[in-house]
Computed example of a mutant assay.
Amino acid sequence: MTIRGVLFDFSGTLFRFEPITEGLVDRRGAPLAGARQAEIMRRMTAPTGRPEGLPERLREEWDRRDLDPPLHRELYTAVLRGSGVGNPDYLYDQLISAEAWTAYPDTAAALKVAAGLEVPVAVLSNIAWDIRPAFERTGTADYVREFVLSYREGAVKPDPRLFARACERLGVPPTETVMIGDSTEADGAAAAIGCLVEIVEPLPTDQRPSALLDALAAYGIG
C-alpha cells in the first residue's frame, strides 16, 4: 500500500516535555526531586486518564481540558497543587512555552524525509496552546503543512472527526495515510476511519534515537 500522507502526534511523539525542574518546590518550599518529580512529570504529560491530585470539583471538567486554554491552566495547576507542588505556575508556564519542549533526535530528519518525498504532513494534537513556536524554534515548521490542534478544532482525540479533518486538509484519503503517535487509545483511534497506525514509546529523548524514521521506513518513506 502506498502512503501519501502522514499524521504525527506532538507530545511524546515528535517532542518531549523536558522543563527546568531545579526550581520546583513542595508546599514547604523544599526542593522536589527524584521519584516525586518523575511522577509529577508523568501526570503533566499522560495522554489519557484522569491524574491523581485532581480536586473532586474539577473532575467532570478534565475531558474538556484541551478545548479551553483558561480551563487547561486551572486544571493542571490544581493537579500540581494536589500533587504537593508549592509553585505550580512555575511548571505550567514552562509547559506552554516552546523552550521546554525538546525534539526527539530524529524529529527533524523524519519531517524532512517526508517533505523531500512530497508526502504532506499534519501534526494532530490534543493541546490547549499553539505549538508552532516549538517547530519554529527547531527549524521544522516549514515541513508541516497543517497543524490540527484540539483547542482550535473543538474536538479531541480519539474523536474520529479530528483525523478525518486532518486527512481532508492534506488532500489524502485516510486509507493512504499513517498516524504516528504514542497513545494506543488516543492516536490509535485513527484506525476507525481507515488510517494505518504506528505507535512509538514516549521515552526520554536520549533513549529513542530513531523510532520516527523507523516508523516511516516501514511504509517506504525514507
Rank of each mutant, 00 (worst) to 15 (best):
I3C: 04
T45R: 04
A186Y: 05
A190T: 09
F17M: 05
E146Q: 15
F15K: 01
G23N: 13
R36I: 04
L54C: 05
E146S: 14
R57D: 15
P88K: 03
A35G: 02
E56Y: 11
S97Y: 01
E99T: 09
R145V: 12
E176V: 00
V197F: 07
T184E: 15
L196A: 15
P55A: 04
T175G: 06
E74A: 15
M1G: 12
D68A: 10
V25C: 10
P70D: 04
V200L: 06
V200D: 06
A78R: 08
S11C: 13
G181M: 02
A141L: 14
I193L: 08
S150A: 10
Y143W: 11
R4P: 06
P55Y: 08
R28K: 08
E176T: 00
L67E: 05
M1L: 12
E198R: 15
R132S: 11
V156F: 00
P204N: 00
F8W: 10
M41R: 06
R137F: 11
A128P: 01
P209W: 00
R43S: 09
R169I: 01
P202R: 01
I193Q: 07
Y76I: 15
G116I: 01
P19Q: 09
D63R: 00
R145M: 11
W62F: 03
E146R: 15
L24T: 12
A211D: 14
D63S: 05
L91A: 07
R36Q: 14
A108E: 13
A103V: 05
P19M: 07
L117S: 06
V6F: 03
